[in-house]
Computed example of a mutant assay.
Amino acid sequence: MMQRAKGFTLIELIIVIVLLSIVAIFSFRFVGLGSEMFVTGADRVKLLDQSRFTIERVTRELRNSVPNSARVLTSSDNSFQCLEFVPIKTAGTYYGAPFSSGANGQFEFVSLATEWVDITPADRLFVYATRPFYIYDDVASQRWAGVATSTLRAGDTTAITLQSGQYFQEQSPRQRMYVGAPPVSFCVDSGGQLIRYRDYGWNETQVRPPASAGTVIGERLVNLQFSGTQLPFRVDDATLLRNNVIHVFLEYRSASAEALFFNQEIQVPNAP
């Protein structure tokens, strides 16, 4: 009696191939989902780290700004918005400062701060400047800011000589004077970049700084890219009962269209 040869039929092979294909498809899909989750998570972490760095830098710089120096410029077509402010180089007390046209332009300034460089003609001296236009106005026509032609620093005391004909309009209740470095701007453009500008000089009317003065410190912002999205900057001027408040709202979108935003309220003490 002949014994039947053992083996697989064609149908059985096809069934096995189909089953292996199904298993392979699900396996690759599982691996693909894992890869997608890893890429999405890594992108989210990278965006979160960048956004935290950005908001922390903006916050720290604004907290060290001259009171009432913050102002905002928004383009008519919402293609950019810029927040400008004056960094504090140092602050202290003045003695013998001029407050009339006939007064001597020489006086003494005392600051207990030690880590600051000398006052230069590019800096401005502020006494009781309670409005932004007092700070940015042309120094030749206003009396809340002065420019030093010479300084002599000895320990905590600096002897200052103002430009010819300059004097201050009004005494500070605490004889406080701020030395402000040239203005700095943070601008958000429609391309989603946050750019920091410096060394572009003083402008009585706020303008968008030249591109050559800018450094990108943040990307993937969507404040100006979607209708209904809140603008990044708003300034509430100081009053007798309220500090100068700067609102910073930065919104980002990840590669998977997830929204991430920071809403920061920064107070600059109203102590002119």
Rank of each mutant, 00 (worst) to 15 (best):
T130Q: 15
L62I: 15
T215W: 01
R208P: 02
E56T: 15
F233A: 04
T161N: 13
A213F: 08
T239C: 00
R71I: 09
K6N: 14
T157V: 15
P67R: 11
P173S: 07
L221T: 04
L13C: 00
V248H: 07
D77F: 01
F262D: 07
N68D: 12
I55R: 08
A70N: 05
A122K: 13
F30H: 09
L224N: 12
H247V: 10
E265A: 12
F186S: 04
D156P: 08
L10I: 01
T239V: 00
R57K: 00
F233Y: 07
W202M: 05
N270Q: 11
Y128E: 11
L13E: 00
D156S: 13
V110Q: 13
A70L: 11
M2S: 12
I217H: 01
L231T: 08
T158V: 05
I195M: 02
A211N: 08
L221D: 06
Y134D: 13
N270K: 06
L240K: 12
G102V: 12
V179N: 01
F85C: 08
T161L: 12
Q142F: 06
P182C: 04
T161P: 03
S100F: 09
I246E: 05
E265T: 14
L221H: 07
A145P: 01
V207G: 03
Q206T: 10
I55N: 07
A5E: 14
Q171A: 04
A122Q: 14
V117D: 15
F262Q: 08
E36P: 01
K46T: 09
Q225C: 06
N64S: 12
S150A: 15
N203C: 03
P272L: 04
M1Q: 07
S111T: 13
D138V: 08
F99E: 05
R208S: 07
L231V: 06
Y252A: 01
T229I: 03
L250R: 09
R174Y: 10
E265V: 14
S227R: 08
Y167C: 06
G214Y: 04
I246R: 05
Y252F: 15
L162W: 08
A42T: 15
E115Y: 09
E204I: 03
S254Y: 04
V31I: 15
R71Q: 14
A148P: 07
N223G: 07
V18P: 01
T158S: 02
F38Y: 14
L83W: 08
Y252L: 01
L152D: 12
F107T: 05
R71F: 10
I135H: 01
D189R: 02
T74W: 03
R153Q: 08
A154D: 11
Q142D: 07
I266R: 01
G180N: 13
A213I: 11
M1R: 06
L260G: 05
A213L: 08
V18L: 15
I11Q: 00
Y94D: 07
A91H: 10
T120Y: 03
I160D: 06
V188K: 04
I266C: 01
R220A: 08
F168Y: 04
I11R: 00
